[in-house]
Design a protein around this nucleic acid. Sequence first.
DNA 1: TTTCAAAATGCAACCGATTGCAAAGAGAAA
DNA 2: TTTCTCTTTGCAATCGGTTGCATTTTGAAA
Lengths: 343, 343
Amino acid sequence: MNMEKEVTIYDIAELLQLSAATVSRALNDHPAINIKTRQKVNAKALELGYRSNTFASNLRKKTTQTLGVIVPRLNSHFMSSVLAGMEVVANKAGYHMLISQSLESFQNEKSNVRTMFNNRVDGLLVSLAYDTETYDHFAGFVKKKVPLLFFDRVTDYLGCPGIVIDNIKAGQEATEHLIQQGCVRILHVTGNLLRNVYADRLAGYRQALRKAGIEVREELVVVNDLSAEAGVDLAQAIMHMEHRPDGVFVSSDVCAVNCMKTLQGAGYQLPEDIAFVGFNNDHVSEIIEPKLTTIDYPGKQMGELAVSTMINHLKGIQAIDSTSSITMHTRLIVRASSQRAKS
Amino acid sequence: MNMEKEVTIYDIAELLQLSAATVSRALNDHPAINIKTRQKVNAKALELGYRSNTFASNLRKKTTQTLGVIVPRLNSHFMSSVLAGMEVVANKAGYHMLISQSLESFQNEKSNVRTMFNNRVDGLLVSLAYDTETYDHFAGFVKKKVPLLFFDRVTDYLGCPGIVIDNIKAGQEATEHLIQQGCVRILHVTGNLLRNVYADRLAGYRQALRKAGIEVREELVVVNDLSAEAGVDLAQAIMHMEHRPDGVFVSSDVCAVNCMKTLQGAGYQLPEDIAFVGFNNDHVSEIIEPKLTTIDYPGKQMGELAVSTMINHLKGIQAIDSTSSITMHTRLIVRASSQRAKS
DNA sequence: TTTCAAAATGCAACCGATTGCAAAGAGAAA
DNA sequence: TTTCTCTTTGCAATCGGTTGCATTTTGAAA
């Protein structure tokens, strides 16, 4: 008596002296069902508080109307923009989203992928964890031909399409900007080079230096986890450098900003002593003084594009394999942190 | 030939000359199954690339091992901490999380709740949208006795437990701190008063004023959406006030910080002209200069507590109804934005 | 060798919606 | 009234695990 019995289509069928088949069709607005019957069924369903059993339905239909999303973390301005964009497009198309975080760990990513696989998401959208080196955990999706799409942190290891920005170009622009401001000893701080985003920005950085005839020095490339704490450590490291850089290009605003604060606390003048360029156009870039020059990253649009690409594929409008990768535009936003008095 | 056939327990059973029941039990490590049989089954499953069909399983078991989470937005430091905390605890207990955002809209919240209901999550964790006024959309959960738990932005309308901080106390402490710093005309900026968090902080603010014998003036309470943009507008409003406040207590760091920036841009000295206190201990509070005094908000712990409370209930360890609400500690962090030269 | 409890496995019903095909009903034309 | 064509509705199998209960197997004690 405590346990409320679930209402099923059979209950409705019985009460209305119909077959379950008819009820099922009526609830799904099947055209073969008489309009009056349909109305009667819907009314009864409402009255009884009927809820469709997604499992029974999915089991039979073999489709879930669900997209899986695996991201490293939810805590950046960029990532939450991406997800907001995704949610809007997905819902509009009648899809749900199953979001999970790898928390930057390969192990979690693996287990999340497994879950998504068992839950039979209709498609999977992934931005890779920090330390993912192998891609076997995606093999199931490839084998079963469940569409798989990477965004931001991609891999072409699996031949799956990816949605990215042109990190090489962005890195190059950021570096060139510093060079134009008169910097000659530019430190580049970035994340794990396994990830395309960081490797490419580094490539862009190098390219810009070469183009300007500046020697590329390995000791001027620092890899860390781009966290706020890493920014503080970075500042310490800079202060202890024999030859201090006159410009710093950091692959993350949050890291850059914390580094700047620490340096300022130690008496450095920014951008006079050191010019800074960040990445992402995070909120903080406009809070720090001097405001941080950065690369604007179209998070919301990336999310929208990722989901609409996926859905078009699922609907058969456009095969996903036809595109190997989509590149989005970025833009350098120049602010005070990098503008030095020209001399 | 293109279509890879799904492998089922029946396939495994046939190949191994066992019954499906045995295979099922073996895959679930049922103790009644001989260890050697279990190993054989697992090996075969691996070999064939078998994946459990969650739907069939859920359909039969009537449990999903999934917790639904509905949050207004993912984009605050606080919220992502909450979710990170939740994810860890949930995964450890073998639960998945279905996360969705209401994007602060009642309509979205309603539709998300419906989805969670149809997907038969084992429990639902909610932080209410900005403008939710009615709670009928949760009626299904209450009726079917699916545990429902609110966190941060709660309601006791439904008699469901909530996990909160003591917003009254926090609001009072923040205000008292400003009073101690010599402020006598304190502006309080907060969100929709439908939400407990904002209503309570306001109550705390009033209480502190009264206690200090300062008149409570309605024109010194501003309600906005606490966004970055709202912060800029707020600054404009302050500059146009006839009697400018000498202290501002904002219910969100992000909003406070943008307000501060704008005021500074207009030549105000902070904290000398106006002292600021924010809320949440967001990253930006340490980036702004002067650093923002704020209330530390235990996001991660709140997430952990919410999920562990839920799971204990689901496991029958502790009925959720026994607790009507759990209150967590907060802490005022005093930084430069509110510290005025004592005179 | 017989006996019997414990361990291991199998049988078969069940969860609830979907859908191809068959059948019944309705209405119009002959 | 009969015939025939659309409309509607129903039958019954199916999706793939799970589980109470029955049955078989195992191994040790009698």
